[in-house]
Design a binder for these strands. Structure first.
Lengths: 136, 136
DNA sequence: ATGTATGCAAAACATTTGCACCTGG
DNA sequence: CCAGGTGCAAATGTTTTGCATACAT
């Protein structure tokens, strides 16, 4: 029950927070912008302010409930952090987002940070791709 | 001689363009924001508009002379594209930027895109790290 | 009750653009 | 000369913030 997730994060269980969580869970598009979440909610008849969506998303991010990504194009997108770690592939033609995970890359990243005297805290890997052309 | 790089890109050799190129070449900090480049130029007594810096950087990017990166924090940074391909490691404590390249990762990325039916066009990999704690 | 959350409008940023004026080739 | 470049100010798009009101506990 998500209400508990909110309490665990020290956040009151409020209507806007439940609505935003709800959209992130139910929408078929896993990766949504603040504006996108806002519009989906308005369209389904819910009332709330865009500023609140931003505030709620920022709090969720700090609580680890959602992850924020800055793909190309100025607008951040958010997704639930309920799945295992993964990276993203963005199709430059369709905008489709594919999630993938490769343990080899994860390991190499840790090695590289270590080699330079650092500890890996986080990373961002995005592949920008185009559909493979079928041989005609 | 950089003037030729500009001509090759179909760009007139103008004073603002030479100034921006000059800063990118001479500054000890390889990764600069538009605002940063602008301020460095003003400080060294050069006159030019911030809007021009943005325009020039965008043109340079399209010409392949500079690369734009979106590290965390809303502000894009630019660097000369005169070196071989590399990725970046950003220290969360000092802001230091370390460049690295790992051919294994490059290869795995191509494989992954291919496995999903795509061709890799570009990618963005940034490691966020902290200095390793010395054992006390 | 009371400390938080919210909504709205305004502010803050980074970046882009319209337009009249300049300039390189 | 003239297409293209520049400066300035205004516009844009995204995200944040101040403040008065409303709500969860």
């Amino acid at each position: 029950m998500e209400r508990q997730d909110l309490r665990d994060a020290g956040l009151k269980v409020t209507s806007p927070r439940l609505k935003v969580l709800g959209i992130l869970e139910k929408s078929e598009e896993r990766h949504l912008s603040a504006e996108g979440i806002y519009r989906l909610l308005l369209e389904s008849g819910e009332e709330l302010g865009l500023a609140t969506v931003y505030r709620v998303l920022t709090q969720f991010e700090q609580a680890g409930l959602v992850s924020r990504h800055n793909f190309e194009g100025g607008t951040a997108v958010f997704e639930l952090t309920d799945k295992a770690h993964h990276d993203h592939m963005v199709c430059l033609e369709t905008g489709a987002v594919v999630e993938f995970c490769d343990e080899r890359i994860e390991q190499i990243q840790r090695d590289i940070a270590d080699r330079y005297g650092y500890t890996l805290e986080d990373h961002s890997l995005v592949l920008y791709v185009k559909p493979k052309r079928k041989p005609s």
